[in-house]
Simulated assay, not measured.
Amino acid sequence: MTGHEGDAVRSRRPLRADAQRNEDRLLEVAAAAFAREGAGASVKDIARVAGVGVGTLYRRFPSKELLIEAVYRQEVQRLCEVAPHLTAMQPPVDALRSWMERFIDFMAAKQGMADALAVVLTDESERLQTRALLADAIAHLLAAAQTESKARPGVDARDVLMALGGISLMAGSEEQRDLAGRLIDLLLYGIVTN
């Protein structure tokens, strides 16, 4: 994929409501397929499960790499946007834990797409920007917990992000979900005050 193709994905015109629903469904199904089967997931199966034709998929995403890139970007955006919603809906420690679990799910999908993402996301500044966005989401969650004296002051969101990355590498697969939960509990034990 050239830089121009990536620019085309990012600078598309707004979609009609029905087309946006189709795209959202495609990205949701693709994220699950890539998490389960990796980048080798069938585009034809993704379109079928999403309830659209393969032609619709290819009109929006002319290559599998562009679909993978779009899934990745949407998942990052969703993960970052959910942090304030979680803090509004749950006690701060529960919100932090919920976000951490979502992060592990995100990383499982990302690992399934790792080979393709290495080709698509070649810009180091973009990777750093993604890390900064994720750290900002964690910082929001930590601030909410610290405001209620539920989290230790001075916990660095980037350190939490790195620890979560390690957890996802060790226990990010579906078969190791219990281990991931226990490791999240250990991480929270270091963050949460009694």
Rank of each mutant, 00 (worst) to 15 (best):
M1D: 04
G3Y: 08
H4N: 11
H4I: 11
H4Q: 14
E5D: 15
D7W: 12
A8V: 09
V9R: 12
R10A: 14
L15C: 07
A19D: 14
A19W: 04
A19E: 14
Q20P: 08
N22L: 07
E23T: 14
V29P: 00
V29C: 04
A32D: 12
A32L: 09
A32H: 06
A33K: 05
F34S: 08
A35V: 07
A35Y: 06
R36Y: 09
E37H: 13
G40F: 10
G40S: 14
D45V: 13
I46W: 02
A47Q: 02
A47N: 04
R48N: 05
A50H: 06
A50P: 05
G51M: 09
G51C: 10
V52H: 06
G53A: 11
L57K: 04
Y58L: 12
R59G: 08
F61K: 08
S63N: 07
K64Y: 06
I68E: 02
V71P: 02
V71A: 06
Y72V: 00
R73G: 07
V76H: 08
V76Y: 07
L79H: 13
E81I: 02
E81W: 03
V82Q: 08
A83S: 10
A83W: 01
P84Y: 01
L86S: 01
L86H: 03
A88Y: 01
M89E: 14
M89W: 04
P91C: 01
P92S: 07
V93K: 03
V93T: 14
D94F: 06
D94S: 14
A95D: 00
A95Y: 00
A95C: 05
L96M: 15
W99A: 00
W99D: 01
W99G: 01
F103W: 07
I104L: 06
A108N: 10
K110W: 02
M113K: 04
L117C: 09
A118I: 02
A118R: 11
L121T: 08
L121C: 07
D123P: 07
E124Q: 10
E126V: 12
E126N: 05
R127S: 14
R127P: 03
L128F: 12
Q129V: 10
L134V: 08
A135M: 03
A135T: 05
D136Q: 11
A137R: 00
A137C: 09
H140D: 06
H140F: 06
L142A: 05
L142C: 06
L142K: 02
A143G: 11
A144V: 07
T147F: 06
E148L: 10
S149P: 00
A151M: 10
R152A: 14
R152P: 01
A157G: 08
D159N: 06
V160K: 00
M162A: 15
M162C: 07
L164N: 00
L164M: 15
G165L: 00
G165H: 04
I167R: 02
I167P: 00
I167M: 08
M170Y: 13
M170D: 15
A171Y: 06
G172V: 02
E175M: 09
Q176K: 12
D178K: 11
D178W: 08
L179I: 11
L179W: 05
L179M: 11
A180N: 12
R182D: 09
R182A: 11
D185W: 09
L186S: 15
L187P: 02
L188A: 03
Y189M: 11
T193W: 08
